[in-house]
Design a protein around this nucleic acid. Structure first.
Lengths: 140, 140
DNA sequence: CTTGTACCTCTAGTCCCTATAGGGATTACG
DNA sequence: CGTAATCCCTATAGGGACTAGAGGTACAAG
């Protein structure tokens, strides 16, 4: 059995975050030692690794909650899991295109800065006037 | 003079957000009508448009606060504004590369889903096992 | 003059943690 | 075996950047 610190080290999920996941019901309540400290077995380790990996891929905690409950019912159709993943992919895609537009605006802005006074600064000027932008853009 | 609603319509910044910006000192306290309603002139409109545009480009409120105070001192060197913009560009760049890695993982995951049972679902399986990923990835 | 919309303040909630305070448990070393 | 260092516990507050709601006031249109 692992202490919360060891579990944290193995999964690279911080200790308070693990407790938080338990608090919001994403992890089941852990067993306790005689001294009331949390103890984790292999199943908890796998579940937390799953969560961490899904977080790394940008899934929200509610999506992860759904994915976990799906993975607990192995005989069901995986259509729902597929849909969640596709939604996440679409989300990532739209962020990507917005970030690309953003990047080119920022590049234009920075490239035009001649290093003079604020009064002549293209950075400040462009920020003040959206009409100077090449295309629409919105962060994240 | 514009009411907060009209200002909101012109800048596409929501009314409560405008009040929030005032509260945190990003906008100066607005003048008031006899009936205690906020009134805005051209300067406030420009300042808010600047904020909105910078937010669209992904700048954080603290960076915007800095940019605004720079723009109030037009005789200073614009090196600082340039640095803020470059930092933002670097940030966008690193998000972009992470999102790209993410996207290809998600695509692989989704492409492998055969639409069968959860027990055979690649989505669930890949999430449970980071070793199946092609590369490192971390969201946002 | 009434109705409906826009406005006001204040508080609390969102997401996903992170930090802090004030303590108890365990482990390592001498 | 004692003590110090490290780990763990709970509970609460904070952060970024808003957003939502309650309960009430001002103003424009008909």
């Amino acid at each position: 059995m692992l202490s919360i610190g060891k579990l944290s080290a193995r999964t690279r999920v911080k200790v308070p975050t693990i407790r938080y996941y338990e608090q919001i019901g994403l992890l089941p309540e852990a067993e306790r030692s005689q001294g009331n400290q949390r103890l984790y077995g292999t199943k908890a380790l796998e579940r937390l690794a799953f969560i961490r990996h899904a977080r790394d891929l940008g899934f929200g905690l509610e999506a992860i909650r759904d994915l976990l409950s799906l993975s607990d019912r192995p005989d069901q159709s995986c259509a729902e899991a597929d849909a969640i993943a596709r939604a996440q992919l679409a989300e990532v895609d739209s962020r990507l295109s917005r970030l690309l537009a953003l990047k080119s605006e920022l590049q234009r802005m920075v490239a035009q800065c001649a290093g003079g006074r604020i009064a002549d600064c293209r950075v400040i000027e462009v920020l003040g006037d959206h009409a100077q932008c090449a295309a629409d853009h919105t962060a994240i």
